[in-house]
Simulated assay, not measured.
Amino acid sequence: MGPHPAVAAIRLAVRRALHDVLNDALSGADSSRTAPPPSDVSPRPLVLVACSGGADSMALASALAFEAPKLGIRAGGVTIDHGLQTGSEVRAAEVAVRLRALDLDPVENVAVRVGREGGPEAAARDARYAALDEAAERLGAAAVLLGHTRDDQAETVLLGLARGSGIRSLSGMAAVSGTRGRYRRPFLHLDRQTARKACLVQSLPVWDDPHNADPAYLRSRLRHEGLPALEKSLGKGVIEALARTAQLSRDDADALDAWAADAERTVRAESPAAAAEAAEGAGAPPALDTAKLYALPPAVRRRVLRRAAIAAGSPPGSLFARHIEEVDRLITGWRGQGAINLPGRVEAQRRCGSLVIRRRDEAAAEH
């Protein structure tokens, strides 16, 4: 008799993710190898699981522990102590013990300090990913597995919709993300109940984070009030439909981003005045031809403007749709407006038929 269907489902999802990690590792090694590897260096990649002790990440850890040895992959784990609750250090130590009991090695328990920027949820997320990045770099991990499920994806799509941030927000979480594809999310097509059932039938202890039921947090309210209300009004299948919307939106956003990257090279200003603008300052961003920008579809043009702002030093996480809309009006609603201030001390200004986006200190140095 085979494993319980829930256990089979999580193991299959992890097996597919590990095959992808192996393929990526092999293709990367083949493209960069100039000499045979030293005999004392293990060719076995290390894959870590980020584990909070909740049902999703414990199910993921158990599946990684089962599948990795069969593929010649080393499996380890990392648990993060955010320090936001009394006794959090005890909980983190217990999770580390559970991971070692699954024969994961290495296992790390990392305490982080959570700031305040962006609100408590965003600050905790930033601290968590910074710690995971550091651990992955230090341990030489080929990938870090995250336990986000289809339910998490649906919540992320709705949060993006509420922000009105455009199609990229509606695309939710990617199955593969981070530097060199570090983060992998094998469970995006599985529901939360499957992960919990897999823990139950394997007798895995599970810790339920009280923050997940705290109505003070937006995601918690959405999980316990918003989504149930949608399912009551629209019927079952809302979560699956939102997750499907995320994938379709991601495909569209990727295509538009590729189009914008190509368009960016074609809108460089070529007039003498614009060429002078482009030549100002070492490494200064090039001027963009406003007539060529105007001719682009709005979705592509706004992406070009966003890329230019980020290249000039505007932080992506602080650059919102309203900022880009203001810059876009320099192209589509030109009435002699002055410079537009953007996050990161960046400004956008229309001059001599061209758009220049650069840091304000560079603009001040000109005068």
Rank of each mutant, 00 (worst) to 15 (best):
A135W: 02
D152L: 00
L102T: 07
H148G: 06
P120S: 11
L158I: 08
I167D: 00
D133L: 06
P120C: 14
R138D: 10
A131G: 10
A130L: 10
V144C: 05
R116Q: 15
T179Y: 11
E137W: 08
A135M: 12
V176Y: 04
E121H: 00
L146F: 09
G164P: 01
G140T: 02
T149R: 01
H148W: 04
A127L: 09
A130C: 05
L170G: 14
E155N: 05
A175Q: 08
R113Q: 14
E117Y: 09
A124G: 13
G164Q: 08
R138Q: 12
G164W: 04
L161F: 14
T149W: 06
G119Q: 10
A131M: 09
A131F: 07
D103L: 15
G178E: 03
R125V: 10
G119Y: 11
E155T: 01
G147K: 02
G164Y: 05
L146S: 04
L158N: 03
L158G: 04
G164V: 03
P106R: 08
D105Y: 05
E108I: 07
L161W: 12
L132C: 07
A175N: 08
G140A: 09
E117Q: 13
V114M: 12
A130I: 11
A130E: 15
T149A: 03
N109Y: 01
V176L: 09
G172H: 01
V114A: 08
S177C: 04
G118H: 09
E108H: 15
V107R: 04
P120D: 11
V114W: 05
A130R: 15
M173P: 01
